[in-house]
């Protein structure tokens, strides 16, 4: 299968830097909300098959608690913030004070889901505003929505546009971890999936042509 997107090392570095700045900003927000130190790992730009993308989060059937935000403007695409249901439950208990809350016990209270969506709103907002500042592009997030379900079912939502031009997923993956060494460790993934035509726009904003 021909790879529609062969990125140069310089373009890969640019995308990584977007992940770095975006997720760094979001990590700061998360750290303020949780009142504890949140670290991030070096972002990775992945150009992989759809199946391989699902494997990054433990395979297509793995259950995750995700927040999905679409972004629009000069550049558009999808963004996911993903935690395990257990980790998300911990966060929601902290935010709402509802000690009973657990993503393994549906139906979920509206308050809990709102809290989680609001968290996604804040994190996506910080990520995208950093992206916007860095690229000088106008990018706005849409209303976040939450789904606790299988990896395959969730991530394909962000692949619909991309899949019309390629059989590869291109995304920036950044992992956030918290520093407290207790049994409530949080390890969240940020996935940024720009639409195919937005890569060109992003590279142009740096004066780099897509096809060097």
């Amino acid at each position: 299968m021909k790879d529609t997107f062969s990125l140069s090392p310089f373009q890969l570095d640019l995308l990584k830097e977007i992940g770095n700045i975006g997720a760094g900003n979001a990590a700061t927000s998360l750290s303020k909300i949780l009142n504890r130190t949140v670290n991030m790992k070096v972002p990775e730009v992945k150009v992989v098959s759809f199946d391989e993308m699902m494997d990054v989060l433990g395979g297509p059937e793995q259950e995750i608690a995700s927040i999905f935000v679409r972004f629009e403007g000069n550049a558009s695409g999808s963004m996911f913030f993903v935690l395990t249901p257990d980790e998300a439950s911990v966060l929601i208990r902290k935010m709402t004070g509802n000690e009973q809350f657990n993503f393994h016990n549906p139906p979920y209270s509206n308050l809990a889901i709102s809290a989680y969506e609001e968290l996604g709103n804040i994190l996506a907002g910080s990520y995208l505003s950093a992206l916007s500042d860095f690229t000088n592009l106008n990018v706005q997030p849409t209303v976040p929505s939450c789904s606790v379900d299988m990896v395959g079912a969730i991530l394909t939502v962000g692949l619909i546009e991309l899949s019309q031009v390629t059989d590869h997923a291109i995304f920036i993956d950044t992992i956030l971890t918290d520093e407290d060494h207790n049994d409530e460790e949080i390890k969240g993934h940020f996935f940024l999936l720009p639409h195919p035509e937005s890569f060109e726009v992003i590279f142009k904003s740096f004066g780099v042509s897509h096809h060097e």
Partner: peptide, 9 residues
């Protein structure tokens, strides 16, 4: 035969 994680698919 099996396929996993069908969402909109």
């Amino acid at each position: 035969i099996r396929t996993s994680g069908l969402g909109s698919c």
